[in-house]
Design a protein around this nucleic acid. Structure first.
Length: 265
DNA sequence: CGGCATGTTGCGCA
DNA sequence: TTGCGCAACATGCC
């Protein structure tokens, strides 16, 4: 669930479920997720207040309380928010819950996270992880000249640059692989070797990949059909030219590209 | 059993 | 100071 489009979907859900509602009970049962704060701060921040808004930057969510309290949520690899009746037992892998009431109705929102790489940080100030994020491609758009400049300054691979959260917030391994396929660029290309038109193609590729993910979401696909062009499809034919897709590793992350139609700079 | 996983951080080293 | 490679984090699933 973890890249920008998934987190944006979660934000829209949380906005519907929480904004304008008053929190009647809250609990985080996992000190590891609440780090560096004590788990008790999660409940203390929520209970008795109403939720004013839900913001997102990259892969981070910020739940905003009426009194200025905030809870930052990151999904890690396997986190997500789900809605359940208040009296429902814990969901599978449930790590925290927020019970709310609005207009005489009551329900519960649960944070589930199998692997527990996520975060649930309650504070009244923005955390560094949030402050240090670069612009969000969906909310802020992509500043192509700035991207071009950042590429020119770096000898790292273009894929690693894109996944740097200070460059663009929310681009993860899937989006980076997909966007570079759409832009027809080899992920191993060095930033400094890219041309101005490449930055434009990458910006368009990212926007297209984000829109595709947002649009499809959980839409039905026939079994065996991948929702991605290249991610997770190493060894299979390129959907554009039919050549076998190559799997490599960049920055320790699985990388897939088409050696025929993705150009190496 | 082994291998892999959508993310981030911290450590050792150049 | 900066950047890079890699292990670690805790766990599920194929």
């Amino acid at each position: 669930m973890p890249e920008l489009p998934d987190v944006e979907v979660a934000r829209r859900h949380l906005k519907r479920w929480l904004v304008g509602a008053t929190v009647t009970a809250a609990r985080c049962g996992d000190a590891y997720l609440a780090r560096p704060g004590p788990v008790s701060r999660f409940a203390r921040t929520f209970v008795g207040r109403s939720v004013a808004g839900v913001a997102r930057k990259g892969k981070w969510l910020r739940l905003e309380l009426e009194d200025g309290g905030k809870v930052f949520s990151h999904h890690g690899m396997t986190g997500d928010w789900v809605r359940l009746p208040v009296d429902a037992g814990p969901a599978r892998f449930e790590r925290a819950r927020i019970d709310v009431a609005r207009g005489g109705k009551a329900w519960s929102v649960r944070y589930v996270d199998a692997r527990r790489f996520g975060r649930l940080v309650a504070t009244s100030d923005d955390i560094d992880e949030w402050t240090e994020l670069g612009p969000d491609p969906l909310a802020d758009g992509i500043d192509v000249p700035r991207l071009s400049r950042l590429f020119a300054q770096s000898r790292r691979s273009v894929k690693e640059i894109l996944m740097d959260q200070r460059v663009l917030a929310g681009v993860g391994n899937i989006l980076a692989n997909e966007a570079l396929w759409i832009a027809r660029l080899d992920p191993r290309s060095t930033g400094e070797a890219l041309l101005a038109k490449d930055a434009r193609a990458i910006a368009r590729g990212l926007q297209a990949a984000i829109r595709k993910e947002l649009g499809e979401g959980t839409a039905y696909r026939s079994s065996g059909e991948s929702r991605f062009h290249v991610y997770g499809r190493g060894g299979k034919p390129c959907p554009r030219c039919g050549h076998e897709l190559t799997s490599t590793t960049l920055g320790g992350r699985s990388t897939v590209h088409c050696p025929r139609c993705q150009i190496r700079r």
